[in-house]
């Protein structure tokens, strides 16, 4: 891999807190190595800002390995930036070239209010899980794991859905701010597994009700969520959830 250095202009959303109105600020960063990650480039910028006595830019991050789901930047009009199936923390600067201007915003959705700069409040996702994203089994109540064989295909599909990192890119990508991909991934995982059957119907009904309560928008099947999902969660999960929801609705009305 050839390495190179670049000078960049950044237009970054700055917002003091949830009450204040934000605006874009322009920054210059120089001598950025193509080997750096996008967040390391932000580290350089923040060091520079601290050095100049200015406030650094606040952003969420933790694992920097694409798995915790904390990082959440809307880069040049795309959640997590230009690379496919990738998180902000795994985006590397070789995606950019010398002289580029990069625009960075927080997730935009009424269900994810901005807390500061690029940090938003995603606790709505926790509350959706609280509504039913689990199997009700107390510690110590389990039978031997191999007493419950599960078809490999089902296990694999459940795993693919369970790979969701809860970052919220799907919501940010959607023009309606819908959380269908997130919710359907959890509903699918548990609907595919035998352990999930007893609560299959109440789960989907309660999670969808909570999702609506949180103010997420409707799904109009644009599939922007799938295209921007860093973990490649499939919209097939949404179709499955719609079916689950209909079936559950019919059954509970009887």
């Amino acid at each position: 891999m050839e390495h190179y250095n670049m000078n960049l202009t950044l237009k970054v959303w700055k917002q003091k807190n949830s009450q204040s109105k934000g605006s874009f600020e322009t920054y210059k960063v120089n001598d950025i190595s193509s080997e750096m990650s996008f967040l390391e480039m932000f580290d350089v910028l923040n060091e520079q800002l601290v050095h100049d006595g200015k406030e650094p830019i606040a952003f969420d991050h933790d694992c920097r390995e694409g798995i915790c789901g904390a990082c959440s930047m809307y880069i040049d009009g795309q959640p997590h930036g230009p690379w496919q199936q990738n998180t902000t923390c795994q985006l590397h600067m070789r995606a950019f070239k010398d002289g580029d201007t990069i625009v960075v915003e927080p997730w935009r959705s009424s269900a994810f209010p901005v807390i500061k700069d690029l940090i938003v409040d995603r606790t709505a996702f926790d509350r959706i899980i609280q509504a039913g994203g689990y199997i009700s089994v107390n510690t110590g109540n389990a039978q031997d794991a191999n007493n419950l064989p599960i078809k490999k295909q089902d296990a694999d599909d459940a795993f693919s859905a369970a790979a969701c990192i809860g970052c919220g890119a799907c919501v940010a990508a959607c023009k309606n701010g819908s959380a269908m991909l997130f919710v359907s991934a959890k509903v699918s995982q548990l609907a595919l597994l035998p352990q999930g059957q007893p609560e299959r119907e109440t789960r989907v009904l309660n999670m969808v009700t909570q999702m609506d309560k949180e103010g997420f928008g409707n799904c109009t099947n644009t599939y922007a969520c799938e295209a921007e999902c860093p973990k490649g969660i499939s919209v097939a999960n949404i179709a499955r959830m719609n079916k689950e929801y209909l079936k559950a609705g019919l059954n509970t009305k009887e």
């Binding site: 199997i135 031997d144 794991a145 599960i150 296990a155 459940a158 352990q195």
Partner: peptide, 22 residues
């Protein structure tokens, strides 16, 4: 051993063989 049982009961999708076992 009980940890694995508990996690499977919660729906943790561990890798499986074609026979359906872990």
């Amino acid at each position: 051993a009980a940890i694995i049982d508990q996690c499977v009961a919660q729906g943790v999708p561990f890798a499986r063989e074609y026979g359906g076992l872990l």
